[in-house]
Amino acid sequence: SKICLVCGDEASGCHYGVVTCGSCKVFFKRAVEGQHNYLCAGRNDCIIDKIRRKNCPACRLQKCLQAGMNLGARKS
């Protein structure tokens, strides 16, 4: 099975251009559409994995963007 390129959980498919799990898919959509201005309490290098993905939305969003997630991406 495929793994989420953001948190490493089991992926549910290709979302916004990137193979991700459902949790990261929903997080990314809400983060971008809600125009959240997340700030990292650390050094913008928090570990984002299945267990810690909820700890720092700033670093999670950064990881989504680095993976290439794009709200305008067509479903493939």
Score class of each variant (00 low, 15 high):
residue 1 S to I: 11
residue 1 S to P: 05
residue 2 K to T: 10
residue 3 I to T: 04
residue 3 I to R: 03
residue 3 I to L: 03
residue 3 I to W: 03
residue 3 I to S: 05
residue 4 C to M: 00
residue 4 C to I: 01
residue 4 C to R: 01
residue 4 C to Y: 00
residue 5 L to N: 08
residue 6 V to P: 01
residue 6 V to N: 01
residue 6 V to D: 01
residue 6 V to M: 02
residue 6 V to R: 00
residue 6 V to A: 10
residue 7 C to K: 00
residue 8 G to I: 02
residue 9 D to S: 06
residue 9 D to G: 09
residue 9 D to R: 04
residue 10 E to A: 09
residue 10 E to C: 03
residue 10 E to G: 15
residue 11 A to Q: 11
residue 12 S to A: 05
residue 13 G to F: 10
residue 13 G to L: 08
residue 14 C to R: 09
residue 14 C to N: 10
residue 16 Y to I: 04
residue 16 Y to E: 12
residue 17 G to S: 10
residue 18 V to Q: 05
residue 18 V to F: 03
residue 18 V to W: 02
residue 19 V to F: 15
residue 19 V to T: 06
residue 20 T to Y: 07
residue 21 C to E: 00
residue 21 C to M: 00
residue 22 G to R: 06
residue 22 G to A: 12
residue 23 S to H: 05
residue 24 C to M: 00
residue 24 C to H: 01
residue 24 C to I: 00
residue 25 K to Y: 07
residue 25 K to Q: 13
residue 26 V to N: 05
residue 26 V to D: 14
residue 26 V to H: 11
residue 26 V to A: 10
residue 28 F to C: 02
residue 28 F to K: 00
residue 29 K to D: 13
residue 31 A to V: 15
residue 32 V to P: 01
residue 33 E to G: 15
residue 33 E to T: 10
residue 33 E to F: 05
residue 34 G to H: 08
residue 35 Q to W: 04
residue 35 Q to G: 11
residue 36 H to G: 12
residue 37 N to T: 11
residue 38 Y to L: 09
residue 38 Y to F: 11
residue 38 Y to S: 10
residue 38 Y to V: 14
residue 39 L to G: 10
residue 39 L to R: 12
residue 39 L to T: 08
residue 40 C to R: 00
residue 41 A to E: 15
residue 41 A to D: 15
residue 42 G to E: 09
residue 44 N to D: 15
residue 44 N to H: 10
residue 45 D to Q: 14
residue 45 D to H: 05
residue 46 C to S: 00
residue 46 C to A: 01
residue 46 C to H: 12
residue 47 I to F: 12
residue 47 I to L: 14
residue 48 I to Q: 12
residue 48 I to M: 14
residue 49 D to L: 03
residue 51 I to L: 14
residue 51 I to V: 15
residue 51 I to S: 13
residue 52 R to Q: 14
residue 52 R to V: 06
residue 53 R to E: 15
residue 53 R to L: 07
residue 53 R to T: 10
residue 53 R to H: 07
residue 53 R to P: 09
residue 54 K to W: 04
residue 54 K to L: 06
residue 55 N to G: 11
residue 55 N to A: 09
residue 57 P to I: 04
residue 57 P to W: 11
residue 58 A to V: 02
residue 58 A to I: 01
residue 58 A to E: 05
residue 59 C to F: 01
residue 59 C to P: 02
residue 59 C to A: 01
residue 61 L to P: 01
residue 61 L to S: 02
residue 61 L to K: 14
residue 62 Q to V: 12
residue 62 Q to D: 07
residue 62 Q to G: 11
residue 63 K to D: 03
residue 63 K to V: 06
residue 63 K to S: 06
residue 63 K to A: 08
residue 63 K to W: 04
residue 64 C to R: 00
residue 64 C to I: 02
residue 65 L to G: 09
residue 65 L to E: 14
residue 65 L to V: 07
residue 65 L to Q: 14
residue 67 A to S: 09
residue 67 A to I: 08
residue 68 G to M: 04
residue 68 G to L: 02
residue 68 G to N: 04
residue 69 M to L: 08
residue 70 N to F: 08
residue 72 G to S: 13
residue 74 R to C: 13
residue 74 R to I: 10
residue 74 R to T: 15
residue 75 K to H: 15
residue 75 K to I: 03
residue 76 S to P: 13
residue 76 S to W: 15
